[in-house]
Design a protein around this nucleic acid. Structure first.
Length: 828
DNA sequence: AGCACGCCGACT
DNA sequence: GTCGGCGTGCTC
């Protein structure tokens, strides 16, 4: 009796919950808990609440308490959705950190973190799950009603369903339908990520037996000699490679696709569709029982040693040095100790490729997660991480939000990649840095891997904040490419330049063409000529929006602004002085392609830049043609630095390295070095020696020397020292402020005013406004102001406060309010 | 993020 | 006279 009385008492107690709403609102909101939910409310569970006049949102309970708010009457929680929390306390702490560190609201972090199926709102669209035929007799009355309605009208919103059922509590019903796979929560981005597949062939294991094989040949040779050829070709190929594609076999055997098809029907060949990804392909052959090379073993042990004392280790290994194999060994150790591993990759395209290799070792205990998965898949992965069914998780940046409970290790592959940064919308976070915080929360370790580490990571390694492990040898004895630097100045003097090509580069191109190998030429400018100038009065056409000079495009015959996309006709006479002496200055990919076609009329050329890859499949077409060797020479911009990895590309020509060495921003040398190193890394694979020709007016440039010497330490160190001692300290935070308005003059006035006011408070930390930064986006003008701060110098909140004050002044002076854009934070 | 409220210009 | 533009402030 006594127990009963006590239970009654607690049930009567009034509880309140603070919830995170999935909106860009600074605060958490308090709701009152109905008595019947008292026992069930818990931090991390989802509730449905009404916010504002009529809107329903799924919110997350961030805290529970007994104190009634004084200043307002709290609304009731409408429903409690979960039996157990969907978000752990650890995750909430992570969200909290992220919202502070990247200056955004918890709601924005929540939006980025939760799959949309976990955050139903009243406008969320509900559709029938077409992939799934359900026995409708198992449905409850109300569920059945919804399904029937969806038969008639394919898309219903949550509020439609509220009307349909005439009751407010619909979420549990929808949740149940979702779990029964009857309905789908539709997303705005319904474009599903489809990995590219290709057919691979294996021989039926029956024919491993020599007698069977002999018998097969006996039959085939008489009746179908072409098929016999195909089998023979297969055996020949299988000696050297572990997977054989259908295209390869057709090429090798000379047999037609029909022969292969009939062999498939006879069950001699087994054809399998496999995912392939050519982007970011690193040529490291992995066998299920590989042996680490001596160098790799040394590196592995060094990593492990560092982990005894340090939380973060940077593995700096040249392209193709076999970093993945080292990762696998470390992952094995961590999961054997019962902890989880997160393996981050910069691009979704990479995940499909690497997963296949990792599945060999970790089987079903490895999962993939990225933002282009559909919702059912995402929720499924989410669940499997909670239950620890997945021990290793491979994912793009959003994978840091998964509900890990015991993370022993995070690998951040290609640590320097900018795609780890989310730019829009908030939270504008860098998954690499978030990963370091996340691992620290779990008392886990972080392994950063890169062939061209970012300066901040390399610096941290050099000052022994991180452990540093270097791996300078390509795996399997593959040689690093030979790099030759050619002085354009010297060759011009000697009159050995042909258009933009030095005698050295021409010789190498011709040699490659003779050997039926491929060439990639890199020129970091698109269009034909970046500048049109009047010889008489030095007039140059400028973009009316952006104040940058317009680039001439021969293909369109127009002048383009590469900043905002503005186009204008190319003038025949100078609009300023009327002279006809207009000259094109400089050169871009279009001109390189043009000139090359003249010099080498027989070579098959292609161009890869933003202009040729704008349409849907054009990039794929170029890549296919390159792979199928329908292209001898590819001319391209930065685009060719990344993804491409084809074993027959042996010569890389950098037409003018100087354009790379002159990036105008503070990351100048880092970016130019990375670009050069990445482009160079594309030369030579599979035992073929690669050659890189770097043409420059400045052969003694520091960055170029570093690339040749393959020793970046000096570069990184001088760079960081310079930044620390002078303009750009290594420990800075940069806040970007965008002043946005329809009137460019107001934008200009406000940003000058704001910058000056900020200068009064923060003196030399303010950069800008800079003239070319005024740009037009849609019908707005934008000006960016940057503020840089030493990490511990000024509190971000103070800065935010000052900016708010100044912007409030804009109101009183009847100027419109500019928008504060989130900071771009470089934490170290 | 939504949504209401409010203040100014151009319409039947 | 009011319709509707968006600028502003509020939502537990």
């Amino acid at each position: 009796m006594l127990e009963f009385a006590e239970a009654q008492f607690t049930e009567r107690e009034t509880l309140f919950v603070e919830v995170i709403l999935p909106l860009a609102i600074a605060k958490n909101y308090t709701y009152r808990v109905p008595f019947e939910m008292n026992d069930a409310v818990m931090v991390g569970k989802r509730v449905v609440v009404q916010f504002g006049k009529s809107k329903l949102y799924t919110a997350i309970i961030a805290a529970t308490g007994k104190l009634a708010p004084e200043k307002y009457q709290a609304k009731y929680v409408i429903e409690l959705l979960d039996d157990r929390p969907v978000v752990t306390g650890e995750q909430l702490r992570f969200w909290q950190w992220m919202s502070e560190y990247y200056m955004c609201t918890l709601g924005e972090v929540m939006n980025a973190a939760l799959p949309s199926a976990l955050k139903l709102a009243s406008e969320t669209k509900i559709v029938l799950n077409k992939d799934f035929e359900v026995d409708r007799s198992v449905l409850h009355d109300k569920e059945f009603l919804i399904v029937e309605a969806l038969d008639i009208q394919p898309e219903l919103t949550v509020s439609d369903i509220v009307k349909l059922l005439g009751q407010k509590t619909v979420m549990p019903i929808l949740k149940s339908l979702f779990e029964k796979n009857v309905i789908n929560i539709s997303e705005e981005v319904s474009e599903r990520y489809k990995p590219r597949t290709r057919s691979f062939i294996t021989l039926n294991p029956v024919y491993q037996n020599p007698d069977n094989l002999k018998e097969l040949f006996g039959i085939l040779e008489k009746r179908a000699p072409r098929q016999a050829d195909a089998v023979l070709a297969y055996i020949k190929l299988a000696r050297h490679q572990k997977s054989i594609s259908k295209t390869e076999l057709i090429e090798e055997s000379g047999a037609g696709a029909a022969s292969i098809k009939s062999l498939e029907e006879k069950e001699v060949f087994i054809i399998e569709e496999k995912n392939v990804s050519r982007l970011f392909f690193e040529e490291e052959e992995l066998y299920s029982n590989f042996e680490l090379s001596e160098k790799q073993n040394v590196a592995l042990n060094e990593v492990k040693e560092h982990f005894n004392k340090m939380d973060v280790v940077l593995l700096h290994g040249v392209t193709s040095s076999g970093k993945t194999q080292i990762y696998i060994r470390i992952i094995e150790e961590i999961i054997n100790s019962g902890r989880q591993v997160l393996y981050l990759l910069p691009e979704i395209a990479l995940t499909t490729h690497i997963i296949e290799r990792l599945r060999v070792y970790f089987g079903a205990s490895i999962g993939i997660y990225h933002s282009r998965f559909n919702d059912n898949e995402r929720v499924e992965v989410w669940q499997k991480v909670i239950t620890k069914e997945y021990k290793v998780l491979l994912g793009a940046r959003s994978a840091v939000f998964l509900p890990f409970n015991d993370l022993g290790l995070i690998i951040v592959d290609e640590e320097h990649e900018t795609s780890y940064k989310q730019f829009d919308p908030a939270p504008r976070y860098n998954a690499r840095d978030a990963a370091i915080f996340l691992a620290n929360m779990h008392k886990g370790k972080v392994l950063l891997g890169s062939a061209t580490p970012s300066f901040e990571s390399y610096y941290n390694a050099r000052i022994h904040k991180y452990g540093l492990v270097e791996l300078n040898e390509r795996y399997g004895g593959v040689k690093l490419p030979e790099i030759e630097v050619v002085s354009i100045g010297l060759e011009t003097k000697q009159k050995t330049m042909q258009s933009h090509f030095s005698s050295v580069l021409m010789a190498d191109i011709n040699m490659a063409l003779e050997k039926k190998e491929q060439v990639i030429l890199f020129q970091n400018r698109r269009g034909y000529a970046p500048l049109l100038i009047c010889k008489i009065c030095a007039y140059t056409p400028k973009c009316i929006n952006c104040d940058v000079s317009l680039t001439y495009h021969k293909s369109s015959g127009k002048l383009h602004c590469h900043y905002c996309g503005y186009k204008d006709d190319s003038p025949k006479i100078c609009p300023a002085c009327g002279s006809t002496h207009l000259e094109y200055k400089g050169f871009g990919t279009e001109k390189i392609e043009d000139d090359l076609a003249m010099l080498l009329p027989d070579a098959r050329l292609a161009r890869m830049d933003l202009d040729t890859t704008r349409s849907r499949n054009s990039l794929q077409t170029i890549l296919n043609n390159l792979e199928e060797k329908k292209i001898d020479i590819l001319v391209g911009t930065q685009m060719v630095a990344k993804g491409l990895d084809f074993s027959d590309v042996t010569v890389i020509g950098i037409i003018n390295a100087d354009s790379l060495l002159k990036f105008p921003d503070y990351r100048a040398n880092e970016r130019s070095y990375q670009m050069l190193a990445q482009v160079s890394g594309r030369a030579g694979r599979r035992g073929k020696q690669g050659k890189v020709v770097i043409q420059t007016y400045d052969p003694a440039h520091r960055v170029i020397r570093q690339v040749i010497e393959n020793d970046y330490k000096g570069l990184y160190f001088t760079e960081m020292e310079e930044r620390r001692s002078f303009k750009y300290p290594p420990f800075y935070r940069i806040i970007n402020l965008d002043i946005k308005h329809k009137d460019p003059e107001i934008v200009h006035n406000q940003s000058v005013y704001l910058a000056n006011e900020l200068r009064k408070q923060f003196d030399d930390r303010v950069i800008g406004p800079q003239p070319p930064m005024v740009s037009r986006i849609r019908n707005y003008y934008i000006q960016t102001i940057m503020l840089k701060f030493e990490k511990d110098g000024v509190s971000i909140n103070k800065v935010k406060g000052v900016i708010r004050d100044i912007i409030t002044q804009f109101q009183t002076t009847r100027l419109s309010k500019g928008s504060i854009v989130q900071p771009d934070v470089d934490p170290y």
